[in-house]
């Protein structure tokens, strides 16, 4: 610190001599940094008031409008009810077999665009063998209740659909 030892001594003397208004007079320069700080703070409050998003804090510490924005996303999977709405026949077949709990889109893939414009957007043909194997290939980590086969030995290379009808796989 740059002040000489005598400075503190002088201060004591000055304290004794100076009356209160005199002291304040000599603290006048301190008002300046205080004004700078207060101006900065006021500016901050002004800017803050202007730029905090409108719905922030309505429902919690977040922008409430973001809930609706997130909901705007368009679904890619139409949902089982939509498929069944048009494809009643095959839905009925499926409902009578072991695949009754497997949703259409589990195999056929996302269909919302197809449902919105059935003529223009059509599904690509499925690779049935790969699709069957994806679930039913034998794997000791799969639960025991689940039907599994070693496809090579089970079919001898013949495609699954030559025996099984995918919408109702049991004989």
């Amino acid at each position: 610190m740059g002040r000489p030892a005598t400075g503190r001594g002088r201060r004591a003397a000055a304290d004794e001599e100076a009356c209160v208004p005199g002291k304040l007079k000599h603290a006048g320069h301190l008002i300046r940094p205080a004004v700078v700080l207060l101006l900065g703070f006021a500016l901050f409050l002004l800017v803050r008031g202007a730029v905090v998003p409108a719905t922030f804090g309505e429902l919690g510490h977040y922008r409430a409008a973001s809930l609706d924005e997130i909901r705007q996303q368009a679904p890619a999977f139409a949902g089982q009810a939509v498929c069944a709405g048009c494809h009643a026949g095959v839905t009925a077949v499926r409902a009578s077999g072991k695949h009754r709990a497997v949703a259409c889109e589990a195999c056929h893939g996302p269909s919302a665009r197809h449902a919105a414009d059935p003529a223009a957007v059509r599904h690509a043909p499925l690779d049935v063998v790969a699709l069957c194997a994806g679930c039913h290939e034998k794997d000791s980590a799969k639960p025991k209740w689940f039907r599994q086969v070693e496809s090579k030995e089970h079919s001898g290379g013949a495609p699954c659909q030559s025996c099984h009808q995918p919408h109702k796989p049991e004989f």
């Binding site: 809930l67 997130i70 909901r71 705007q72 996303q73 368009a74 679904p75 890619a76 999977f77 949902g79 089982q80 695949h99 709990a101 497997v102 949703a103 889109e105 589990a106 195999c107 996302p110 679930c135 689940f146």
Partner: peptide, 23 residues
């Protein structure tokens, strides 16, 4: 994961649940 918030608020289930073949 949003739990497919855009789906579940439309009355649909999530995409993962929709596609799960074994429930």
């Amino acid at each position: 994961c949003t739990f497919c918030y855009h789906r579940i608020t439309r009355g649909l289930t999530t995409a993962c649940c929709e596609a799960c073949p074994t429930g």
